[in-house]
Amino acid sequence: MQVSMTVNGRDVSADVEPRTLLVHFIREELRLTGTHVGCETGYCGACTVHVDGKPIKSCTMLAVQADGATVTTIEGMASNGELHPVQEGFWERHGLQCGFCTPGMIMSAAALLEENENPSEDEIRHGIEGNLCRCTGYHNIVRAVEYAGAKMRGEEPPAPDWEGGD
């Protein structure tokens, strides 16, 4: 079947089997391998991308369901060589260790901050409830999102934990 969509601002189309999952379309057809496949069951969130502005799990959506949609993947977050504030937050606050969950985490966190520009720690943890991390214990991920939120609001990010922040 023919599918067409806009991915990171680029119009793409391809002939796919109906059973092709959106994540495979993104990784194998478009060669955008920043979107990861972790559990393949819908639980880990490593495959999170935005479809029409909302975070979804691309391992649990068919490419044909996304026909006509606007898709953003992790590769579409930086612009003109500048990291997205959430990407910068993960960098500045060590929000990752192995990095496997990171693309999905960033997509979920960015969507959360779109909806709620100043989330509490509890709201951040709920906002990323669909994303599992096996390394960090989430602490620095929460700090990274707080950093990004402050940046996006035009405020000074809180000091990092290792410099006496909380």
Partner: peptide, 9 residues
């Protein structure tokens, strides 16, 4: 029900 991504679909 589920998580943010599940609730969006």
């Amino acid at each position: 029900t589920g998580d943010v991504q599940v609730r969006n679909r």
